[in-house]
């Protein structure tokens, strides 16, 4: 391609300007979080560094408990999704049964009509089940994920039928074949879906806000919003420290596994 020197320069400058603009908010949050609050609105390159804001924020609200809740929540959802979506995807990929087309359409419908929007009715259901203010209630609507079923079905369909048949000739039943042949071959899909699912549910806010009302069940996002609302306008360094803390695990995981993250999101998106 005839890319002139000027052209290349303009592109580089454009890309970097946008990148710096995009990175600035994050950088600024880090800056205020590691400096005393007196410097929150005053720029001084030599301002003293401190980690006190993190310690103070950690002590000011039950963040340890919030972290535990979020951890339990994403683990519960991930395990549930892996089991249920694997079974359903296997059924759609390799079994012929009456109604499979209609049922698959019903599964795909969830990509449009998500539990995120059906908050009124789902709250009624949770109340009827006596599950309000439990971690199970936060996760349950998301366990049977239409997206997960679709993704795994596509992967399972690419598994050569000969492998399946070879295992059956050796006397393995359908579940054993699933476990021995399909699941190992779908490992990259599980990783991709797992990363997307964990980051999605770690970050989820509206439904947990509705269905929880105690420290024992609140995930970090809801905890953070309460913390920031109470202290609003008082101490920005403290709020920014808490904000970074709650995003910390994902941010660190992202920096460490940047390549896998990006590839996972790609893999989950295409097809």
């Amino acid at each position: 391609m005839n890319q002139t020197g000027l052209d290349r320069w303009l592109n580089t400058i454009g890309a970097w300007t946008l990148a710096l603009l995009w990175f600035l908010p994050l950088l600024y949050a880090v800056w205020t979080a590691v400096h005393p609050s007196a410097y929150a609105t005053r720029f001084d390159l030599w301002a003293p560094l401190t980690f006190e804001n993190f310690a103070n924020a950690w002590a000011a609200a039950p963040f340890a408990r919030y972290f535990l809740n979020s951890f339990l929540l994403v683990t519960f959802i991930l395990i549930g999704q892996f089991i249920l979506c694997t079974l359903a995807a296997y059924a759609f990929a390799r079994f012929t049964f009456p109604g499979s087309t209609v049922l698959f359409a019903l599964v795909l419908l969830q990509l449009l009509v998500m539990p995120d929007i059906l908050i009124v009715e789902n709250y009624k259901t949770m109340r009827a089940l006596g599950l309000v203010d439990t971690i199970v209630a936060i996760g349950l609507p998301y366990i049977a994920s239409g997206f997960g079923i679709f993704l795994l079905r596509q992967t399972f369909k690419t598994v050569p039928k000969e492998l399946d048949e070879a295992a059956r000739v050796e006397g393995a039943g359908p579940l054993l074949v699933l476990w021995r042949v399909y699941v190992p071959l779908a490992k990259p899909t599980y990783l991709a879906y797992g990363l997307v699912s964990v980051s999605h549910h770690w970050n989820n806010f509206l439904w947990p806000l509705i269905v929880t009302n105690s420290v024992e069940t609140r995930p970090v996002t809801v905890g953070l919003s309460i913390f920031a609302a109470v202290d609003q306008g008082i101490d920005w360094s403290l709020i920014n420290a808490a904000t970074l803390m709650t995003s910390g695990p994902l941010l660190i995981a992202f920096l460490l596994f940047q390549r896998q993250f990006v590839q996972s999101f790609m893999r989950a998106g295409i097809r």
Binding site: A91, F97, Q110, L140, A144
Partner: peptide
């Protein structure tokens, strides 16, 4: 095969119907 298909599908289907289709 029919029975296998339906059985594999049923746990996910029950939750899908309970938290997506019925509420809608």
């Amino acid at each position: 095969e029919w029975i296998y298909g339906w059985l594999l599908l049923s746990p996910a289907l029950v939750l899908l119907i309970a938290f997506t289709h019925l509420p809608a």
